[in-house]
C-alpha cells in the first residue's frame, strides 16, 4: 500500500500542483517583481529598482491607513471573538429553536461585503440623520460603523467554529471537573477554553487576516471619507494603483509591504496560540 502510494504520488498531486503554480505562485512572484517596476499593464513593465518603495512613503497616506487599520483590527478582533464565543456558548445550551438561531446568526456571512456596506450605510445614515448628521461628519462615525459592520458579518462565522470546538470538548473531562468540585466559571476558564485552543487559533487567524484585508466593506460604507480619514490599507493600495497616473508600481510595492505585515502578524499569532494548545 505504502509503496503504491509512493509510486503514484506524483500523478495525483500534479493537477493540484499545476493549478497552484498557475493560480498562486506565478502571480505572486510576478507581483513581487512588478513592485520593482514601472508599468501600465503587466506586460510592459520596466525595472526601476526600489524607487516604488521610496515613493510609497513619500506621503502620509500609507502610514495613516496602516494606523487606522491597526486601530480597527485591534477592536474588531476582540469584539468578534468575544461575541462569537458567547453566542457559541449560548447556542450549545439546550435552547428551543437553537438551530434556527445558529442559521440566522450565520446568514450575514453569506451576503457580499459591498452589498452589506451599502445597506449599513443607509441604516447608519438613517439613524444619524435624526441628529442632523451623516456618517461622513467625522472619522469616528465611519470607524465605529466599520466595526459594527464587521462584527455583524463575522460573528456568525466565528460562532460556528466555536460551536464545533465546544462540541468536541470531551464530556469525560467536564464530568471529572464537576466531580472535583469546580464551579461553572472555573470549568470554563480552566477546562473548556484550554481544550478549545485549536478553534481559538483558527478564529484568531481568520479575524486578524480578515480585519487587515478588509476592502469591500470599507469601499462601500465610507469610501475612505471624510477626506480619506477612514481609508484602510487595502483601499489605500487600490486608490494608489488606480487613481494616480503612473503609480501602478507604487501600489504594487504597497501591496507587497501589506503582505509582509499581515503575514508577519498572522505568523506570530499562530506560533503563540499553537504553543498554548493542549492534548486532552
Amino acid at each position: 500500500m505504502e509503496k503504491t502510494m509512493k509510486k503514484y504520488f506524483p500523478l495525483f498531486v500534479l493537477p493540484t500542483l499545476v493549478a497552484f503554480l498557475i493560480a498562486f505562485v506565478v502571480p505572486f512572484v510576478m507581483g513581487v517583481y512588478l513592485s520593482f517596476c514601472e508599468f501600465t499593464t503587466v506586460t510592459n513593465a520596466r525595472f526601476v529598482g526600489t524607487a516604488n518603495y521610496i515613493k510609497a512613503f513619500s506621503n502620509q497616506d500609507f502610514l495613516r491607513a496602516l494606523i487606522f487599520t491597526v486601530l480597527f483590527a485591534g477592536v474588531a478582533i476582540v469584539t468578534i471573538n468575544v461575541f462569537g464565543f458567547l453566542l457559541a456558548l449560548m447556542l450549545t445550551q439546550k435552547l428551543p429553536g437553537r438551530n434556527l438561531f445558529r442559521t440566522v446568526f450565520f446568514m450575514p456571512n453569506l451576503i457580499g461585503g459591498i452589498v452589506l456596506g451599502y445597506i449599513w450605510q443607509s441604516m447608519i445614515n438613517g439613524v444619524l440623520s435624526g441628529f442632523g448628521m451623516t456618517m461622513l461628519m467625522d472619522a469616528k462615525y465611519g470607524y465605529w460603523g466599520l466595526i459594527i459592520l464587521m462584527n455583524w458579518q463575522m460573528i456568525g462565522y466565528i460562532m460556528v467554529i466555536y460551536i464545533a470546538g465546544l462540541q468536541n470538548v470531551s464530556t469525560d473531562v467536564l464530568e471529572a471537573a464537576k466531580i472535583d468540585g469546580a464551579n461553572k466559571l472555573r470549568t470554563l476558564f480552566r477546562v473548556t477554553i484550554p481544550m478549545m485552543m485549536p478553534s481559538i487559533t483558527i478564529c484568531l487567524f481568520l479575524t486578524i487576516s480578515n480585519s487587515f484585508k478588509m476592502f469591500d466593506q470599507n469601499l462601500a460604507l465610507t469610501g475612505g471619507g471624510p477626506s480619506g480619514k477612514t481609508t484602510m490599507l487595502a483601499l489605500d493600495i487600490y486608490k494608489t494603483f488606480y487613481d494616480k497616473v503612473g503609480f501602478e508600481g507604487v501600489g504594487q510595492a504597497k501591496a507587497v509591504l501589506f503582505f509582509l505585515i499581515v503575514a508577519g502578524i498572522a505568523m506570530v499569532q499562530l506560533v503563540l496560540t499553537r504553543h498554548k494548545e493542549v492534548e486532552s
Binding site: 450605510q121 443607509s122 445614515n125 440623520s129 442632523g132 448628521m133 451623516t134 456618517m135 461622513l136 461628519m137 471619507g225 471624510p226
Partner: peptide, 8 residues
C-alpha cells in the same frame, strides 16, 4: 437639503 446631510 441641509448642508450637514450632504454626505449621504
Amino acid at each position: 437639503t441641509e448642508p450637514k446631510m450632504l454626505g449621504s
